[in-house]
């Protein structure tokens, strides 16, 4: 879809030619030397947003994982982040939560500059990173307790919340089993519980439904929906378009380290399904030609 590709390019151009060098309250974003000209934040970070990313850059060796990424996540939204494999979702979320230092750009959590005041910003964030291990020689209950105590909570509150979280995640029976013996889905759930113990105002969940069985996934969705109703903000990354379309009210499509489209789900998908819109934007669909020999009849 060359037309769409062109459209994306225009979006980038607007960033470059937009109101030059918006005011910043921090060291100017210094993107690494690349073929793309230096981009400056098109607009100042939104202090009211739960999460406001401006001009994020990250490169690993030769590969640019994230380039000039801007994103605003409104408070109280259920925000879906979708994109093909290698689009930079995990890198973006890692930089947005203080796990990975960006090469350039800023992250603001409700107006607090995360990389300038990490402790203050991280206190309001609950994070479920993807592709990291847990302290799996602890039991499920110990792990959740550990996360709570690390956040500086008192023992009684931790104990009470850990019990109710394990019950909500349907892990009460396995509370005293070592996490190393958990299944993949159970591991996701215990990690999610660890991310929620301190009642964060914003939850950032990288692939929370991977390997989780349908019943548990439905339970988790209910928990998250309740949390959003109660004023919390949730950001999830996922491959499953159907899930995002049903569950989220906002969505951003990420491709090649940039935001290709962002807004409410209805804005982004227009008349199409989210999946069709996604495929249009990202491209890469191939017709199965030359596989005639695969037909068995």
């Amino acid at each position: 879809m060359p037309g769409v590709r062109h459209c994306v390019y225009v979006v980038v151009m607007t960033h470059q030619t937009g109101p030059g060098g918006g005011p910043t309250d921090h060291a100017p974003a210094a993107p690494p030397d690349t073929v793309t000209p230096a981009t400056r934040p098109a607009s100042p970070p939104d202090p009211a947003a739960a999460l406001s990313l401006r001009g994020l850059w990250k490169r690993f060796g030769q590969k640019i994982a994230v380039q000039a990424l801007d994103l605003d996540v409104p408070v109280g939204s259920f925000y879906g982040l979708v994109g093909p494999n290698g689009a930079g979702k995990t890198t973006t979320l890692s930089m947005a939560t203080g796990l990975l230092r960006p090469d350039g750009g800023t992250v603001h959590v409700r107006g607090t500059d995360l990389w300038a005041h990490p402790d203050q910003a991280k206190a309001t964030l609950g994070i479920l990173p993807d592709g990291v291990r847990l302290f799996d020689r602890l039991t499920g209950l110990q792990l959740v307790t550990y996360a709570g105590l690390l956040r500086g909570m008192d023992r009684d509150t931790v104990a009470e919340r850990a019990r109710s979280l394990l019950a909500a995640m349907d892990l009460a029976a396995d509370a005293h089993t070592y996490v190393v013996d958990y299944s993949a889905g159970m591991t996701k759930k215990i990690a999610l519980a660890s991310a929620m113990i301190h009642a964060p105002r914003t939850l950032v969940l990288d692939e929370p439904f991977e390997a989780v069985d349908p019943v548990s996934a439905a339970n988790i969705r209910d928990i998250l929906a309740d949390y959003v109703t109660g004023g919390g903000t949730v950001i999830v990354s996922s491959h499953v378009m159907d899930l995002v379309q049903r569950m989220c009210d906002h969505v951003a499509i990420v491709g090649a380290g940039q935001v290709l489209a962002a807004g409410t789900v209805d804005e982004v998908r227009g008349e199409q399904t989210l999946e069709d819109r996604f495929v249009d934007l990202v491209g890469g669909r191939t017709r199965a030609e030359g596989l005639e020999w695969l037909r068995t009849s």
Partner: peptide, 28 residues
Amino acid sequence: KGARSKGLGWFDRFPATPVGAVAARCTT
């Protein structure tokens, strides 16, 4: 079925602070 343990182990014996939590985890 994996191995099981009772209660919070060292997390109950160390003070309920971040330092105590890390110490309890390391001891475990």
